[in-house]
Every structure is written in C-alpha cells, then in structure tokens.
Design a protein around this nucleic acid. Structure first.
Ligand code: ZN
Ligand code: ZN
Ligand code: ZN
Ligand code: ZN
Lengths: 150, 150
DNA sequence: CCGGGAGTGATACACTGTAACAGTGCCGAC
DNA sequence: GTCGGCACTGTTACAGTGTATCACTCCCGG
C-alpha cells in the first residue's frame, strides 16, 4: 500500500510525508472503516497529539491520489481496494451486520448509468454509489444461526 | 403534495400533523434543497422557535413515508418527485452549478446493479446513487457564455 | 377521573468538518 | 551565507450536522 503511494507521489512530484503515511496505514489497518476522529485518536499518543484537522488534510491528499475513498453515507474512510483511475465509478458494498465495506467496479452499471444520464440531459462529473446490505459471509452466518435455532 | 401525504397517512393510520405539513412544505418550497437547520430557521418566526431536533423528527417521518429523500453527499433534503415504492432505486442528479437536484429512476441501472451485487454475493437492503455534474439548463447556459466570450 | 401513548418543546451534547494563523524545515535566488 | 518563498503541520476556534434525554401537552379509551 505504502509502496504504491510512494510511486504515485514520485510520478506527480508530491510529497509522501510521515503523517500521510501514518494516516494511510491507519485507514488500512482498521477493522472497520474509521472516521477522521478515530484516525486522529489512533495516531495520538501521550506526548503527541494529532488533531483532526491534520487528519482531514492528509485524507484529502490521499483521496486526491485515489488511495482512499470517503463513504458519504457513513462519514468514514476506506483504503482503495483497486488501483483504478480517478474517474472510474466504484460501487461500495456496506455490510450492516459486520460493518465491513467492500469495493467493486462494474462497467455494466457504469454504461447503463451513462445512458440514463444522457437521456436526462445530465453531464456527470462524478458519482457515488453505496449499497447497504449483508455481505456473503454474514448472510451465511445468519442463515446457519437461523437453521440452528429452528 | 400535502394531499398525497394525507392519503398515505390515512392508509397507515399515522398522523399528518401541522409541523409535519410545514416541514414538508418547506422542503418543497425551497429553491435549493435545504438542510435541516435551514428548515428550522425558515419555520421559526418571532414568538415561535422550531428547534432542529423537531425538524429531524418530522423529516424522519416524511422519509419513512417516502415523501422526502435525504441527499447523503449534501446533507440536504428534497421532496420526492415521483410516487415510488419504498424499495425502489432512485438516481439523484445534483447540479453543481445551479445546486438543483433532480430525481429519476432507471430499471436498466437497477437490474445491472442487481446482477453486479449478485456476482459479489451481496444482498442489498437499500442503495444510494448520487451523481454530481451539470444539468441540461446550466450546460446550455455555460456553452452560450463560452461562445460569446470566444 | 385516570392512565397511557403520540407528538412536541427545550436543553444539552456528540460528532463532523473548516477557517485562520503561526511555526518549521527545505530549497533556490541572490 | 542569508534571505525569502513554499509546502507541510500544529493549534485554536468555530460552523455545521445529528442525537439523547427529559418534560409537557393533548387526546382518547377505561
Ligand atoms: Zn478504490
Ligand atoms: Zn458482513
Ligand atoms: Zn423519490
Ligand atoms: Zn443546473
């Protein structure tokens, strides 16, 4: 993760500073997608306080690079699971049971959405598509529990 | 708008109170999709203060009925432009120029998204799909200005 | 009359995000 | 070397968004 970040930063001649690395690692290491304040708390230790505003700045930077995504419906941040271009549409799969957030792309959805927007005379700049539901693992678990209970 | 609300409330045996009506009308009457605090301010007059918390409660109620939608990427609320069922997927078209938010449905997008989710082993409960860009009117305007300037 | 539920008012609070300014370190210009 | 600009971070304060909690009223059935 950090390796790719360094590569991207070299390409664009921007700095991959210690703070930015720590924020990226914090996002990647979290079980559940953390909020900015969670990250600030995680990076703070006795003797070193990382203010939320610093985290926001690092997150903005990482989102610019496409290394991190923001989940609008949760005010949370996830590490990018793919290496996609900036313009690519992504579908976020938010599990309401385990809280995990997976990420996928779908040319099929993208093209049908493009047609729908064209029909509406709308020129898209970017879009967010977030689906809440149950991931396969949780569904399997709950079904097993249901059968055991019945 | 209010007529449909009354009908829905009769069906479900819930109350369509004065406050709920006022909040619904405030959302519908606003030029731009208002935030909850905007609505609270709009409904408050000298001698009568409507607290944001009351607005939130009314908005929750109205969203339950499907009369109002929440725009996650804007923290704003829009009146429902259609009379769709609760489960139906909606695409929100957010114009970054005029700030207007339009709403459309697309069986095509819905089915392709369904296939994508099925492939991922994900069971959807509900989804949000918000596209930011330029509406037809604004695009026409800006093109005209561009040509005039060139 | 009394009890209970729905709705609202009011206050306080938690959470999320931004503005503004100061300090620090680096690097090129002079 | 010194100066000045630039990027980055720290710090504080603040704006905006949403929720918890309790009290009060109103209405309706027993
Ligand atoms: Zn990604
Ligand atoms: Zn899950
Ligand atoms: Zn609608
Ligand atoms: Zn527009």
């Amino acid at each position: 993760m950090a390796a790719r970040a360094e590569e991207l930063c070299r390409e664009r001649s921007v700095q991959f500073t210690a703070l930015r690395r720590e924020v990226l690692e914090a996002v990647a290491a979290s079980e559940r997608p953390p909020g900015a304040y969670d990250i600030a708390e995680r990076l703070s230790k006795p003797g070193r306080r990382v203010a939320p505003v610093s985290v926001y700045r690092a997150l903005d930077f990482l989102m610019e690079l496409g290394l991190v995504h923001r989940i609008a419906s949760r005010n949370a941040f996830v590490p990018c699971a793919h290496e996609h271009g900036a313009g690519e549409n992504v579908v976020f799969l938010i599990c309401r049971t385990c809280g995990g957030i997976d990420e996928t792309t779908s040319p099929e959805v993208e093209s049908s959405l493009g047609r729908t927007l064209a029909r509406a005379g709308f020129t898209p700049a970017h879009s967010i598509l977030e689906v809440e539901g149950d991931c396969g693992a949780c569904r399997t678990r709950s079904q097993g529990a249901g059968r055991a209970g019945a």
